[in-house]
Design a protein around this nucleic acid. Structure first.
Ligand SMILES: NC(=O)c1ccc[n+]([C@@H]2O[C@H](COP(=O)([O-])OP(=O)(O)OC[C@H]3O[C@@H](n4cnc5c(N)ncnc54)[C@H](O)[C@@H]3O)[C@@H](O)[C@H]2O)c1
Ligand SMILES: NC(=O)c1ccc[n+]([C@@H]2O[C@H](COP(=O)([O-])OP(=O)(O)OC[C@H]3O[C@@H](n4cnc5c(N)ncnc54)[C@H](O)[C@@H]3O)[C@@H](O)[C@H]2O)c1
Lengths: 210, 210
DNA sequence: TCATTTTTGTTAATCAAATCACATTTACAG
DNA sequence: CTGTAAATGTGATTTGATTAACAAAAATGA
């Protein structure tokens, strides 16, 4: 079953980065093959779920043998496009944005923040990790010279809709926001939220009840 | 239907913090009532999903009228225990941990990082936002004087299992980790991951395919 | 080579969540 | 007070994901 033929379930796609990372770690440790049962132990996913997930990307395994780690990495890497670096823009270089920029996905060679923007004149012009902080209005122009695949926003809630409107206008279609304010965007634009407060509240709540 | 009687679906609980925050914002803006349809517009959730979620917590609405915002806030606030501050410990005060500590949930009066720990002697003793950075070994003792409801870990992947083992030993049961390394813990301990890299990869992937 | 064991890939069964559809309740206008 | 419009709460249905069960395929060892 090839990817093109059938729609791959959302959840299977969501797990792909986890599979990919884990397999890379295994390869680094010198392993060459893995069975769904072993992998399941490591990442706490049922082996049968893993096998079904893998099956969406082709007949990747061999009965009585398992999966070739190198082969899986190659296939999944292709889907995740790890060979070409995915350029990202960061909007809002406050405390959180700064931490992201300093780290800049150093463990993930295929993700890279290549431009950064802020509204505060006091920090515009500053360079962090080889990236110059620019006024947001420069983004439009930067797009003509740099391949920006997505945006990470760490601006405060009250500024988010404004910023996102501008991003949409510039043609950005993938946005990850650390502020949980729900924003209005056209159908074609994907917005994800990484809502720390909700995560913590859920953690405590589920410990209490669930 | 009262909360005690029936098990509340996981997803309904997960949405509770979002409902709560949104309702508080509406109250701040002077609104006193809301219909499931309006609320659904704001937070992009189907009205029927909202009504069913709410129904798990009692008969909160009135036909032909909607919901009283103050009443919802009171009920949900009670479930989320917003009246007593939930004390948190932060492990790992690097770039990311520092950003969290400086912000310290200032928009959420019921969450508060009350202690912080790190392994680096160079920063132990430093005070950020009235919290002193201590060696991790001090946590055990701190637990006898302070109510710590959960832990946020921003230590690197390679240190995570070690740190978590210690936390479990101390009796901590709720952990949020920014490092995606899967850890082994007893059944009774809840670990959540907030995996930035996976979030970004999924964002780009779903924009590409889904 | 052949029997045994292992492990996959997938059909069928289960489970959980979202949505539909509508009877019931309440607000409100006249 | 009464009739109409509006909105809830919930059985029934649909959708989607996970898990169980197992036949088919490949490896291994005698
Ligand atoms: N840091 C945390 O612990 C934490 C916790 C929960 C949620 N958040 C969310 O993440 C956001 C960022 O957190 P932070 O601690 O980095 O805040 P911060 O105030 O340190 O940084 C915000 C940055 O955004 C910039 N900014 C404001 N408006 C802008 C605009 N229109 N265009 C470009 N840049 C703009 C500011 O100049 C500032 O540098 C918070 O507002 C919050 O919504 C953070
Ligand atoms: N910052 C990012 O953009 C980013 C992105 C993806 C994932 N992460 C994850 O978050 C983690 C933290 O990120 P960061 O940028 O703050 O890294 P960092 O290196 O700045 O901070 C890590 C901190 O943990 C402390 N530490 C190490 N071992 C410890 C131990 N055993 N006990 C107590 N403290 C210990 C270190 O002293 C340091 O202060 C990363 O390792 C990574 O797994 C971060």
């Amino acid at each position: 079953m090839t990817p093109q033929n059938k729609k791959i379930p959302r959840m299977s796609l969501e797990r792909l980065p986890i599979y990919y990372r884990t397999l890379c770690n295994l390869a680094d440790d010198g392993y060459q093959r893995i069975k769904s049962a072993q992998l399941g132990k490591i990442i706490q996913i049922e082996p049968t779920t893993i096998r079904r997930d893998f099956s969406y990307f082709g007949d990747l395994g061999k009965s009585g043998y398992g999966y070739d780690i190198g082969h899986l990495i190659e296939i999944f890497g292709m889907i995740l496009e790890v060979n070409e670096t995915q350029g990202l823009a960061l909007i809002g270089v406050g405390n959180l944005g700064r931490a992201l920029l300093i780290n800049n996905f150093r463990r993930n060679p295929n993700l890279e923040i290549i431009t950064a923007y802020d509204a505060d004149p006091a920090i515009i012009g500053e360079t962090i990790n080889d990236v110059i902080i620019q006024p947001l209005a420069d983004l439009q122009a930067d797009l003509s010279t740099k391949q920006i695949k997505g945006v990470i926003s760490t601006v405060p809630s009250h500024a988010l809709q404004l910023v996102v409107d501008y991003l949409v206008e510039c043609g950005i279609t993938s946005i990850l926001s650390f502020a949980p304010e729900p924003v209005n965007v056209p159908e074609s634009v994907h917005v994800r939220y990484l809502d720390l407060t909700t995560e913590v509240q859920n953690l405590l709540l589920l410990a209490e009840l669930g």
